[in-house]
């Protein structure tokens, strides 16, 4: 169908169809060749596995014996498995705490940085550098900082007479501790939002000033609407990422204490690669997919109220001529 359209366009452009490949046909073929690595990857590593995991979720399979079709038994088990409940609760709690904290913290620092102070680049380097070392090394460092007895944080608290919690070893404090570790990398969000702030045209602020708007109203009525698309993008991607949090829970707490940090993907990992229940783990994956999509949809729905798109039509209408 699409090629027929191109053919028609070609006939119209040249008045007749050339026997040899025309330039635009050549271009179309080369275009497909250029995107073919991605197209192939999409099929082999994304769409194919996406479908296969759905199919697998109706089987029982330990990768040794052949898979056995079990209908919706895996899905039924999801709703009676208490660990699914723990995992979902812990994960939503973590995402609900860490994503807004990271965004608001990043925005606060970015607003300060946006004053164009002297030495701005030094602050930027210092504040961003923790975000660069994220990973297992960071986890190690925080295991030591949060050590219940000899860790820096509790030792410091003790000198001012506060008996700190056991952090990672305390059921109530384990998730907030992981949020704290995540917040250390607040510089990542800061840099993105600083970029957004610097793209707000100063003429808008000048106009608001002339109209007598104070600093707070300028922030609320100019800055926030102008950066809201980027806030939304970071909210959504941050949320999808946080719902799949794995490394810190695996390394720092192994899901404990008493399943307080048994994040969803950690439980899924154990079901698949410790218990070798590939079918059940696939059902787990699909449930998570549905949870994430539903919550993302809620965020996107709410965004029509608070996100402002400037020049949306101009952006989509522009095309390459010819």
């Amino acid at each position: 169908m699409a090629t027929a359209g191109a053919q028609r366009g070609l006939v119209r452009a040249h008045g007749w169809a050339r026997p040899k490949l025309s330039m635009s046909q050549r271009e179309a073929i080369d275009g497909f060749i250029c995107i073919s690595p991605w197209l192939l990857g999409l099929l082999v590593f994304t769409l194919g596995p996406f479908v296969v995991s759905f199919v697998l979720s109706f089987f029982r399979w330990n990768m040794i014996r052949p898979p056995v079709f079990v209908g919706v038994a895996n899905y039924r088990e999801l709703f009676t498995d208490q660990f699914v409940r723990y995992a979902t609760k812990a994960t939503v709690y973590y995402a609900g705490l860490s994503v807004p904290a990271g965004l608001l913290g990043g925005l606060a620092v970015a607003l300060l940085m946006n004053l164009n102070l002297r030495g701005q680049s030094i602050y930027r380097t210092l504040i961003y550098s923790p975000a660069v070392v994220s990973g297992v090394a960071t986890a190690m460092l925080w295991i030591w900082l949060l050590d219940a007895e000899a860790g820096l944080i509790n030792s410091a608290l003790r000198t001012i007479g506060i008996r700190g919690p056991a952090w990672l070893a305390d059921e109530r404090w384990a998730v907030p501790s992981l949020v704290l570790v995540n917040l250390w990398g607040v510089g990542g969000g800061m840099l993105v939002l600083l970029g957004a702030l610097q793209n707000v045209p100063t003429t808008l602020y000048d106009a608001a000033k002339v109209d007598g708007a104070g600093a707070f109203r300028r922030f609320w009525h100019v800055t926030v609407p102008m950066i809201s698309p980027i806030l939304l993008f970071n909210l959504v991607t941050g949320f999808i990422g946080a719902m799949q949090a794995f490394t810190n829970a695996y390394v720092m707490t192994s899901g404990g204490p008493h399943y307080a940090t048994m994040f969803y993907v950690l439980y899924l990992y154990r079901s698949a690669f410790v218990d070798f229940r590939m079918g059940y783990a696939s059902a787990l994956a699909w449930l998570l997919f549905i949870i994430i999509m539903a919550l993302t949809l809620v965020i996107l729905r709410s965004s029509t109220v608070w996100v402002y798109y400037e020049g949306l039509r101009v952006g989509t209408a522009r095309r390459r001529g010819g």
Binding site: P49, F50, S53, M243, Q244, L268, A285, L288, F289
Partner: peptide
Amino acid sequence: PGVVTLIP
């Protein structure tokens, strides 16, 4: 979410 394709 990348986790959906993890197992296959």
